[in-house]
Design a protein around this nucleic acid. Structure first.
Length: 301
DNA sequence: ACGTTTGCCTGCTAGC
DNA sequence: TGCTAGCAGGCAAACG
């Protein structure tokens, strides 16, 4: 389940291979991978063919490759979202098809030669699109990986993520204060703060000792500050460990799993002892998914 | 056969 | 009356 740390691992892995390369060929094996592309599959292919890649950028869980744009205005990007099970893999040219392979790009790099960039996705919630770039609202860089104050239009409504230097802590606190919804739902709302999914929401709330159903507006200033500190800590630790992998669904660009699953304190640990107090971690249905928390050290209200 | 997982969309309400 | 923001529920798809 790729969230910010997993997507950043993918971006960082892609960056040295694709920046400076030219897209030499595009194969669309399954059109469902292009559901977010406005235009036909042929249009997608035509817009990418021959284009040079100048940067690999990420905001929250969105990833985009800036495309060189001598004559094209506004400038464009190849934007991707991995959804639940999407993978971007670097392979040798002519490498055998991946299981659930949807799109393959052939790239040519002046220093590294030819390479295949493969988009594979079991559940097809992920997608790729060629998208126009728009100026950022605050004039700051669009995301990690580029200084350009541009963001892919499909990611323009997505808030900055908590590891973004331009993330506005005060605006985050004001946003929580306006919302009566459960804090967990608000953390999962990518227009409030991006990059957090079910795993890191549960982990950050556990670390901050906040019950997932606490109304966001009921949190004290101090609790909000603690929560933000813990969100950043868990995201950074997961990033350092290469992300969280439970199965083959999340891997880096070389197909390798991450190690953060060993560091989880709450997520997926229902019935096991809370590492802090020894009480049993509880799992509850919430928003069509599961919340994992310690009822003893994350008291409601 | 059903539960699991994700972001996003839709339709509703409240308030200015 | 019309707009916006907040809100909650439900959807898509594949796999075990």
């Amino acid at each position: 389940m790729p969230e910010l740390p997993e997507v950043e691992v993918v971006r960082a892995g892609l960056e040295p291979a694709v920046v400076g390369s030219t897209i030499a060929g595009v194969e669309v094996l399954d059109g469902r991978a292009l559901t977010r592309h406005v235009g036909s599959h042929d249009d997608f292919t035509a817009r990418l063919s021959g284009r040079a890649v100048t940067a690999a950028v990420r905001r929250g869980k969105f990833l985009w490759l800036l495309l060189e744009s001598a004559a094209i205005e506004p400038a464009e990007a190849l934007i991707g979202h991995l959804g639940m099970s999407g993978q971007l893999l670097l392979r040798a040219p002519g490498a055998p098809r991946e299981r659930h392979e949807r799109v393959r790009l052939a790239i040519d790099h002046p220093a590294h030669g030819e390479l295949a960039v493969v988009f594979a996705d079991q559940r097809t919630f992920g997608s790729l699109a060629v998208d126009a770039l728009v100026p950022t609202a605050d004039g700051a860089p669009g995301g990690w990986g580029s200084d350009a104050p541009l963001v892919a239009s499909q990611a323009a409504h997505i808030a900055r993520d908590p590891l973004d230097p331009a993330f506005d802590d005060a605006a985050f606190a004001r946003g929580l204060g306006r919302r009566a919804s459960a804090i967990k739902r608000v953390l999962l709302d990518q227009t409030v703060v991006s990059g957090i999914g079910n795993i890191y929401a549960d982990e950050a709330l556990w670390a901050a000792r906040i019950h997932p159903e606490t109304p966001a507006s009921a949190l004290s200033t101090r609790a909000v500050r603690t929560l933000l500190v813990e969100i950043r800590a868990v995201l950074q630790k997961a990033l350092a460990e290469g992300g969280t992998s439970f199965d083959a669904q999340y891997v880096n660009v070389n197909g390798q799993a991450g190690y953060f699953a060993h560091s989880l304190n709450a997520y997926g640990r229902h019935g096991q002892p809370c590492p802090r107090c020894g009480g049993a971690i509880r799992r509850e249905a919430f928003m069509n998914r599961s919340s994992h928390y310690c009822p003893r050290c994350q008291r409601k209200r």
